[in-house]
């Protein structure tokens, strides 16, 4: 009984310790922006590997999510003879929710896991200690560019997701199901508000980008430097990112749209 209690406490302390380390690392990473600014080339290279290489999965998913939304929405809306509102339904769900959330989940799976594995392996093969030996701060040289690359890429990807999804919804709704072309767009334009919906979606995706990249970098940097440790860290990145995104999405939605 006492043993179990002690174990519970130890786990709790360890979790708290990790939590604190993550925040300290976050501060270090952000402070590293001073050494990133004179070298924007690093940021560009990382934006390539974090953002550009995620573009295919994001656009293809966006297209299909938009198409499915259109199909499902049509089924429900046609029961109320409200097919003309299909555009609103598709665009509102994409811009407010699915764009930022699904993109963040894909981003965590595609880019976050790669970041963790890369940094974990750098640690396991002692490249990070090597940098330190050469008096180069690995946080500033390795983590900071990746962090800001993730922060920049996420909103871009989410906006792309929403735009392509709206087009996918248009193809299925207007092309396949025969919803009126004019009503689809005009209802959408009448109901979707720039500040309320689009900007809030972009803010959401910024927050998700920050959290996902931060989790990925921390898990990589904090991983046990063995093959097993790196594999565990990669799994943790995806799981923690997904949970963080979904919980934060609820909080942000309640703050933005809850009246």
């Amino acid at each position: 009984m006492l043993d179990a209690l002690a174990r519970f406490g130890r786990h709790g302390m360890a979790a708290l310790e990790r939590f604190g380390r993550a925040h300290l690392l976050f501060l270090q990473i952000v402070a590293g922006i001073t050494s990133l600014l004179p070298r924007p080339g690093l940021l560009v290279t990382q934006t390539y590997s974090v953002g550009v290489r995620t573009i295919v999965i994001v656009t293809v998913s966006g297209l299909f999510v938009g198409m499915v939304l259109s199909l499902q929405g049509y089924y429900v809306l046609s029961q109320f003879a409200a097919e003309d509102s299909l555009g609103v339904m598709v665009a509102a769900s994409l811009v407010r929710e699915l764009g930022p959330v699904v993109t963040a989940l894909l981003f965590a799976g595609r880019a976050g896991s790669a970041l963790t594995a890369e940094i974990g392996l750098m640690k396991a093969t002692e490249q990070l200690s090597g940098l330190e030996m050469m008096a180069v701060d690995p946080v500033r040289r390795i983590l900071t560019p990746r962090f800001f690359a993730g922060l920049i890429s996420m909103p871009v990807l989410a906006v792309l997701f929403s735009a392509i999804g709206a087009l996918g919804g248009y193809f299925v709704g207007v092309g396949l199901l025969g919803v009126d072309d004019g009503a689809f767009w005009s209802q959408m334009q009448a109901k979707i508000d720039w500040n309320e919906d689009v900007i809030n979606g972009v803010i959401k995706s910024l927050v998700f980008g920050l959290v996902c990249t931060w989790i990925a970098l921390f898990q990589g940097y904090d991983s046990v430097p063995t093959s097993e440790g790196v594999s565990r860290a990669t799994t943790r990145t995806v799981v923690h990112s997904a949970l963080a995104v979904l919980v934060l999405d609820f909080v942000l939605t309640a703050m933005m749209f809850g009246e």
Binding site: A91, V159, L160, S162, A163, A166, Q189, I192, W194, V198
Partner: peptide, 10 residues
């Protein structure tokens, strides 16, 4: 894409 959202969607 942002321009598209601004002009066509919102």
């Amino acid at each position: 894409a942002l321009f598209f959202l601004a002009m066509q969607v919102s």
